[in-house]
């Protein structure tokens, strides 16, 4: 997090080209293309069933796309397994929080360090100096991350004993522990009250400022319009709009997708 905050540049960190995915008779994604630039917060919105989570799962290796390619950080990102995607630098959270519920909060984040650390079986058994140092570094970094997201006071509590909002934050800390270049968040504000959402917004902005690009799926329009630099709108698996929040919310296709008619999108508070 100590890296200087780069301004949003023109060079894409992640590019998807013609991504398609079909489940049985349902075309979940058809020919979706998009670009996420390094340093921005990129929103992914759309009505229920629009294909947001499918796109997310195709990106993170849970499904393989039927067609299309991803390029991440200058290299193709195709047919990788979820763990390889994480290795490449994309970390994710889950819509229905998937923490290691019976492990302490700190250990959840320490597990996130797995992919960036090396100690193997022999290191673990012999506990040589390098392993001990690495272990200390893992613990230190995990604790820093808990402080960063604001749940350090619950470090030794079991993940499932944390309040809902704290669980969401813990999941973000765990994802950040993998040193991602792109942090992909699946509805992080779901179920949060206004205060929690506000502090989430502050957290997202801070993460971005500290150099991590964010992909955000969200239903909370206010949050999306407030925090995202650019937004991709999906409907029935197709891209119907892409651009800045201001542009997108005036787009007639978007309005009609959300309201099913030619009604103005009422987004009070969406600055």
């Amino acid at each position: 997090m100590s890296a200087p905050a780069p301004a949003a540049t023109r060079e894409p960190l992640l590019a998807g080209r013609g991504i398609s995915k079909r489940f049985g008779g349902v075309q979940a994604l058809s020919e979706v293309s998009f670009e996420i630039r390094a340093g921005e917060i990129y929103g992914l919105i759309g009505p229920n069933g629009a294909g947001k989570t499918s796109l997310f799962n195709v990106l993170t290796g849970i499904y393989t796309p039927d067609a299309g390619t991803f390029t991440f950080d200058g290299r193709p990102l195709n047919a990788l397994k979820p763990n390889e995607v994480a290795q490449r630098g994309i970390a994710r959270t889950f819509q229905n929080i998937r923490l290691f519920a019976n492990l302490p909060a700190l250990e959840n984040v320490m597990i996130g360090r797995h992919v960036r650390t090396r100690a193997g079986v022999f290191g673990a058994m012999l506990r040589d100096r390098r392993t001990r140092e690495e272990e200390r570094a893992i613990e230190r970094r995990a604790f820093e991350l808990l402080e960063y997201v604001g749940v350090a006071s619950r470090a030794n509590d079991l993940a499932r004993h944390l309040a809902y909002g704290d669980q969401r934050r813990l999941e973000i800390a765990r994802a950040l522990a993998t040193d991602p270049k792109l942090l992909a968040l699946d509805e992080p504000a779901a179920g949060m009250n206004a205060t929690e959402t506000d502090s989430l917004k502050a957290l997202l902005e801070r993460i971005r400022r500290d150099g991590t690009t964010i992909l955000l799926i969200e239903h909370d329009m206010k949050l999306v319009m407030n925090v995202c630099d650019r937004v991709l709108v999906l409907d029935y698996g197709k891209k119907i709009a892409e651009g800045t929040a201001e542009v997108v919310q005036k787009d007639p296709a978007v309005i009609s997708a959300y309201l099913g008619g030619d009604v103005a999108l009422n987004l009070k508070g969406a600055a």
Partner: peptide
Amino acid sequence: VAARAMGI
């Protein structure tokens, strides 16, 4: 699933 998403 979560373990795999963490790069394990």
